[in-house]
C-alpha cells in the first residue's frame, strides 16, 4: 500500500493501538500501523493472525457454518482484537485498548474495512513455493525452533543443506519434508 494510506485510514480511530494486514496464503506482513508507543513486532504478529483466520475458516467449514463475512473478536486481558478477511488475499487485524466499547469498535472496523477494501490490491499475490511455506510454518510452531530444520532433516532424510533452500527441493523431497513437519508438530496435515 502506498505510504501513509493505511495511516490515513486508521489514525483517527479512538482507542486503536495497531492494525496489521497479512497477505494470504503466505501469512506474511503486507502492511501495518502501530501507535507511537507500541513495541509489538508486526512481522511476528501478522503471521500468527493469518494462521488463526485460516484455522478458523477451516473449523467453520467443518461445521458448515462458514461465510465470507465472518469476523473474529478476541477479548484478552490487555487487548481487544478484531480479525477479518478482506477478499481471499488479506486478513486485517485491529488491536484496540481493552476498555474500548465493543459497539464503537465494530462501527470503526466496518468503516475502516470499507476504505481498505478500496485501497488493497485486487490481484492475488503470487503464491510462493509450498516448501518455503512449510519451512516457515515449522519455524513458527516447532518447539526449540532453532533445531527444527535439523530435526526435519533427520526425520525426512533430506539433507539439511537442501532444507535450508526449500524452494529448490524436488516434489518427492517436498513430500518427505512435509511428512516430517507433520510428525514434529503432531499434525495429520498442514493447512497452508
Amino acid at each position: 500500500m502506498s505510504d501513509r494510506n493505511l495511516e490515513r485510514v486508521v489514525e483517527e480511530i479512538p482507542s486503536l493501538r495497531a492494525v496489521f494486514i497479512t497477505a494470504m496464503p503466505d501469512c506474511l506482513l503486507y502492511d501495518s500501523w502501530l501507535k507511537a508507543d507500541e513495541t509489538w513486532t508486526s512481522e511476528e504478529v501478522a503471521s500468527y493472525f493469518g494462521d488463526l483466520i485460516r484455522a478458523n475458516r477451516e473449523g467453520l467449514k467443518a461445521l458448515r457454518a462458514w461465510s465470507s463475512e465472518m469476523q473474529v473478536t478476541i477479548e484478552s486481558t490487555d487487548v481487544l482484537l478484531v480479525l477479518r478477511e478482506v477478499s481471499a488475499d488479506f486478513v486485517v487485524s485491529f488491536a484496540f485498548a481493552r476498555n474500548a466499547p465493543l459497539g464503537m469498535v465494530r462501527l470503526h472496523v466496518k468503516r475502516a474495512l470499507a476504505l481498505l477494501d478500496e485501497l488493497l490490491p485486487k490481484i492475488r499475490p503470487e503464491e510462493r513455493p509450498r516448501a518455503l511455506r512449510i519451512s516457515e510454518f515449522l519455524t513458527r510452531y516447532a518447539p526449540d525452533a532453532h533445531t527444527a530444520l535439523k530435526r526435519a532433516a533427520l526425520r525426512s532424510g533430506v539433507p539439511v543443506e537442501l532444507l535450508e533452500r526449500p524452494e529448490h527441493l524436488s516434489v518427492q523431497q517436498v513430500e518427505q519434508f512435509e511428512r516430517s513437519v507433520c510428525a514434529i508438530l503432531g499434525l495429520d496435515t498442514l493447512s497452508l
Partner: peptide, 18 residues
C-alpha cells in the same frame, strides 16, 4: 543412521551436541 543414511550422521551428531 550411518548404515542407512550416512549423509544424516552429521545432523544427528549436531543434535547430540545440542
Amino acid at each position: 543412521v550411518r548404515a542407512q543414511s550416512p549423509h544424516s550422521e552429521g545432523v544427528l551428531a549436531d543434535l547430540l551436541r545440542e
